[in-house]
């Protein structure tokens, strides 16, 4: 379980203080798939970095499985438990062979060579990249590079994975690869996923959507509940799935349609 208790975070010094998060309280249970939406600067990346202790709260407490992220004896355990995947695939790759890149984390943990081998093989298999283990990662597509980055995080055997706009530099095919991979990690491997994105269709696949605005939590609920209020989301600088916009347009044109529709297939079913 990840828990934020009355967490605030300030960047800068006393004179130029930027209050990036304001008194956030949030609990994420094991096994959840939580999407986080919010305008640029709403505090999403700050929240992500607080989860694995890259940042320490200015006020309040962040805990992972009941242990505070500022507990110095637990820092390494938390880094291992909480994997991060960032936006730019090119900044996350260090080695010149895919498998070496994935081995980096377990090597740093001090694992035995046989254990490292087993972890790398498994992580690459999970993301569907085993055939490319010997490739130079720099020659891969964006989606493949991001899958290598995910494998690198998986090789640490994390309980939680945080994706900070990991799809935003990819083409539609690459995005689909990443979304499919993360859903599988959640449903088949029980990894808790925190998925930061600007793409409403991706957020709609989550079990829960949290919307940040100006450093506070503006909405928190199922995708159906959150995306029901199109105008409120627009005020928060957040879009809704295109199918929801189509459904709302039809509703305004006098056709009876529930406000829970998030996909074209649902919309077709409701109209037929």
């Amino acid at each position: 379980m990840i828990e934020f208790k009355n967490v605030s975070f300030d960047y800068g010094d006393d004179e130029n203080k930027i209050n990036a998060l304001k008194d956030i309280s949030l609990t994420i249970e094991d096994g959840e798939f939580v999407a986080i939406l919010g305008h640029n600067g709403s505090g999403k990346s700050t929240l992500a970095r607080l989860i694995n202790g890259l940042l320490a709260p200015s006020r309040g407490e962040v805990s992972v499985d009941g242990i505070s992220t500022v507990d110095s004896s637990a820092v390494w355990r938390i880094r291992q438990q909480v994997g991060m995947v960032f936006q730019n695939p090119d900044n996350q790759i260090i080695a010149s062979r895919v498998e070496e890149d994935v081995a980096f984390g377990p090597e740093n943990l001090g694992c035995e060579p046989a254990e490292i081998r087993a972890r790398v093989d498994e992580a690459l298999a999970v993301v569907g990249m085993r055939e490319l283990a010997h490739f130079d990662p720099h020659l891969l597509s964006g989606g493949q590079k991001q899958r290598v980055a995910i494998a690198g995080a998986l090789a640490m055997k994390p309980k939680y994975l945080v994706f900070d706009e990991a799809t935003s530099m990819l083409d539609p095919k690459g995005r689909e690869e990443i979304v499919a991979t993360t859903r599988r990690l959640n449903s088949d491997y029980g990894i808790t996923v925190i998925f930061i994105t600007h793409i409403p269709e991706e957020a709609a696949l989550a079990g829960r959507v949290v919307v940040l605005s100006g450093g506070t939590i503006a909405m928190d609920g199922t995708p159906q509940a959150v995306f029901a209020d199109v105008d409120a989301l627009a005020d928060l600088g957040v879009g809704v799935p295109k199918a929801r916009l189509l459904a709302r347009g039809l509703e305004q044109a006098g056709i009876d349609i529930p406000d829970s529709i998030l996909t074209v297939d649902d919309l077709v079913a409701a109209l037929c």
């Binding site: 706009e165 935003s168 600007h198 600088g237």
Partner: peptide, 9 residues
């Protein structure tokens, strides 16, 4: 528009 939020787009 790649990487921008709804308002930026």
């Amino acid at each position: 528009t790649s990487g921008l939020d709804a308002r930026g787009k």
